[in-house]
Amino acid sequence: MLNYIMRRLGLFISTAFILTLIAYALHYWLNQSHSQPIINGYITYMIQILKGNWGISIIDHQPILAKGLKSLASTLELSIFAFIGALTLAIPLGIIAGIYRNGQIDYLIMSTAIIALALPVFWVAIMMPTVSNIFHLTLPIDGQISPIYEVKNVTGFMLIDSLFTTGTYHFEAFYSRVRHLILPSIVLSLFIFAETIRLTRHSISMVMKSNYINAAYSKGLSTVQILRSHVFKNIYPSIIHDLRSNLSTLFSFAMTVDIVFKSKGSGQWLLTSIHEGDYIVLPTAILIIGGFILLSSILIDILLMLTSPTKRITLYVD
């Protein structure tokens, strides 16, 4: 097992190294003046990166690293919310569809999933305010939090930071943040919802076909009992694993949602910077976002390995 973790770590280091090479190539291309040879330049670049000097934004003279991390935190909050919402709904539906495979219910659930997948994210996002207006929901349609509340940046996660303001606003700021997350996370959850239904259904029907389930049935266990004792244990690693391989697609959607809802996340950060000609964000974004996705994939791998050692699916090379 230690061997497995070490291999993951090795993978992390080598992949991260390639990421820094890509970032440096971009940095090199964006900087017109090249005072030193490429290899020396890379070393100086890396030293600066490791020291934390990632550069200063030309727009507002703020350190780029801090801005990038803060926007990443905002996108993460959104994604986590969307994940929780989508999974709580999609897993039960996927299980039902898997059990009644090719039945009427399965048809209905799968159609919903395909519809959810086919809705263009940005379009749903711009329609959302109108939709919520029709149902007379007064949910906020943009931004991170109501500007009335002044929340100091402590962890970067607005949800947590807003809890530090309970002295002045009680829980108002926190509620405001939660309310601001609702519409965008609904939009973002569509994709996760569809994917999870598909994956759960697939895994369930695979597991249900297998011999040991038949054996369990013959022992006289009910479907619910079987689900509880055998199926869950066997399907969750593959669901998590598949979602993990979709992380970067998911992040792409999260950025789009974030841009439309102006929720101060990675997407908006990138877009406004590019529009204002602050291209230095691009290599930074590769390092921050790419690094984050890499790190979380590997952590998920190790976690999966710890919880279910038999399922050692390797998406990445060893």
């Binding site: 007064t138 009335i148 509340y149 606003y169 829980f171 108002e172 509620y175 939660v178 309310r179």
Partner: peptide, 23 residues
């Protein structure tokens, strides 16, 4: 799961009231 739903509902309810003095 039920707890989460109740929590969300609770948030929505209380959030509508707003902090009078701040507002």
């Amino acid at each position: 799961m039920r707890i989460i739903l109740i929590l969300i509902y609770f948030f929505l309810l209380t959030a509508c009231q707003g902090n009078e003095s701040t507002l």
